[in-house]
Design a protein around this nucleic acid. Sequence first.
DNA 1: CTGATTACCTGAATGC
DNA 2: TGCATTCAGGTAATCA
Length: 319
Amino acid sequence: MPELPEVEVVRRGLASWVSGRTIEAVDVLDPRSIRRHALGVEDFRGNLEGAVVTDVVRRGKFLWLPLTDNPHSTDGAAAEPKVALMAHLGMSGQLLLQEHDAPDQKHLKVRFRLSRRDGMPAQLRFVDQRIFGGLFVTALIPTDDGGPGGLSATPVPLIAEEAAHIARDPLDPAFSFPLFYARLRRRRTGLKRALLDQGLVSGIGNIYADEALWRARLHYARPTDTLRRSDAERVLESAREVMTDALAAGGTSFDSLYVNVNGASGYFDRSLDAYGREGQPCKRCAAAGIHANIRREQFMNRSSHTCPVCQPRPRNGRW
DNA sequence: CTGATTACCTGAATGC
DNA sequence: TGCATTCAGGTAATCA
């Protein structure tokens, strides 16, 4: 399940290999993977064939490739991209760089044939088992806050329209804690719900939400409008730490290109402290000589993992 | 604004 | 063995 660190690993893996390449042909093998492209398969292809990829940009879990019709205008200056190929990996999506003769993956959905370049793979492929992910073409629009930020290779003053409603993520150098805290306090909701709200802070999914809450010793139902500044700082910093660790793990296990851009990551090797540890001892409590088992509860139709001792449920809005 | 619900999907795992 | 059910997850639309 790609979350922000996995998407960033993919972004880095793609950037140096697709920037400057022309998309020469597009094969849509399963139209369901481009269902968010409202104008259909032919329009999708028409927008992409002949376009030149200028960059790979990310905000939260959205990834996009800005495109120009021509790499250079008549005076030699690079043309300004106006549209982008947008990708969301969903639960099981992968963007793979492949040689032209690589056998089709079982769940290959879309294939992009790229202009030839020595020593570089010929195709970009979108593979997605469960079709929660998808591709579409979207406009690039100006932002009034300095661009998408994220960790894009170059500063980009334009943001994909379909990602404009997404807040900055904790790894974004321009992420504003004061803004996040102010908006958080105005909410009347539980902390985990807020962490999962991509409009408030992006890039945090169910797994990292549980991990960040565990690290910060906060319960998922803690009301956001009573949250102390120090608590909010702690949970945000915890999310940042978990993501940074995951990114480092992804980086080490992805040194070579073809492994690099395979959508997997060090994620599965990473040791998790809360998520998936139902019935197992809380590591922090165990270190303190206290026996407490991680508990799993249904919340927002998904599993939440907490330690009943060091993440006590709030009482009457406060604790 | 907030939250609750549902659709979207497939394959692994479980139940009978 | 085979068939049915359940579960996992992110996003977005819809409804209260």
